[in-house]
């Protein structure tokens, strides 16, 4: 095939998906920027208001700042626990302990369940009615136990921590384990000859040699924390409150519940900017000299 023909051939295959992508992803995304500068209820006509929505969002009394704080909480608290546990489990499994394969499957298992199903499962675990697993366990221990509203709005963020950790650890564990298994044994042997113990091996050999993967994991957690929506939406039955709203749920509520489309899309634009900035900052802070082996 001649070079020109080859290019035409490739273009013919690329064009339809690119067109679809432009039509259904790029065009709405560009439009979101436009809508964020308007006052529009989605029913009448839109009015151009410049940066009015952004000023409102960033005003002191706005619901946006608490929502952003919730995102940061859900990024940091479960994030640190997830990363630590994933690293620990990956390292232990990497030591080829007995039943490593079983543990690997067991830890990864929650990851194959969709996040909505995970949330529904935890709704049942936390339920304050008779089906609530946790309350029933507590009742077994203490027959006089009064039902606790674990998933009540004011407690929900903390209640989400074990759920996010449970559902996320397996994925990061597999990611880290793959990175650890790529490290040649000779490095460990050399370190052992130099007198390194288990902790020193982990700190001086494993961690530096899997730094790129760890950085990727952290960035996944940062993006996931900033975008979190579905689990809150499900656990709050579609009615998050100011104590549980994240940026994404707030955006959805503003657009689809309050019909404040300009304001909602302005939140979406800020969310986009924040995810972009957070990713760039994470890359920069975590950047180290690449170790080739």
């Amino acid at each position: 095939m001649k070079r020109k023909e080859q290019k035409t051939f490739i273009a013919a295959f690329l064009l339809p998906p690119l067109l679809l992508y432009a039509l259904f992803v790029l065009w709405p995304a560009v439009n979101a920027f436009r809508y964020s500068l308007t006052r529009w209820d989605g029913l009448g006509s839109a009015t151009w208001v410049g940066l009015y929505n952004f000023r409102n969002i960033l005003a002191r009394s706005s619901e946006f700042m608490p929502a952003l704080e919730h995102n940061v909480f859900l990024m940091v608290v479960p994030g640190i626990i997830t990363l630590s546990l994933a690293l620990f489990f990956a390292y232990v499994i990497h030591q080829r302990i007995r039943g490593a394969r079983l543990f690997r499957i067991a830890f990864f298992f929650p990851n194959i369940i969709s996040s909505v199903a995970v949330a529904l499962l935890w709704v049942l675990i936390y339920s304050a009615s008779d089906v609530g697993l946790l309350n029933n366990l507590l009742r077994l221990i203490n027959p006089k136990h009064e039902m606790i509203a674990f998933a009540e709005s004011s407690r929900l963020l903390w209640a989400l921590v074990p759920m996010i950790v449970w559902s996320g650890t397996g994925f990061y564990m597999v990611l880290f384990l793959a990175a650890m298994e790529n490290i040649p044994d000779s490095f460990y042997e050399a370190a052992r000859l130099d007198g390194a113990g288990s902790f020193a091996l982990f700190r001086k050999v494993t961690l530096p040699l899997m730094w790129d993967v760890l950085t990727t994991g952290i960035i996944f957690l940062v993006i996931g924390g900033l975008k979190i929506f579905d689990v809150i939406w499900v656990m709050e039955n579609g009615r998050p409150t100011t104590t549980t709203h994240t940026m994404a749920t707030l955006m959805y509520s503003k657009v689809f519940e309050e019909y404040n489309i300009g304001y909602g899309t302005a939140i979406a634009v800020l969310l986009f900017i924040l995810v972009l900035l957070a990713t760039m900052v994470s890359f920069r802070l975590l950047r180290r000299e690449r170790l080739e082996y």
């Binding site: 339920s127 304050a128 009615s129 009064e146 674990f150």
Partner: peptide, 16 residues
Amino acid sequence: LQPGAMAMTHTESQLE
């Protein structure tokens, strides 16, 4: 209010 009511949906509480 029934203990735990603040975490119940309409169907859960109505079932109670």
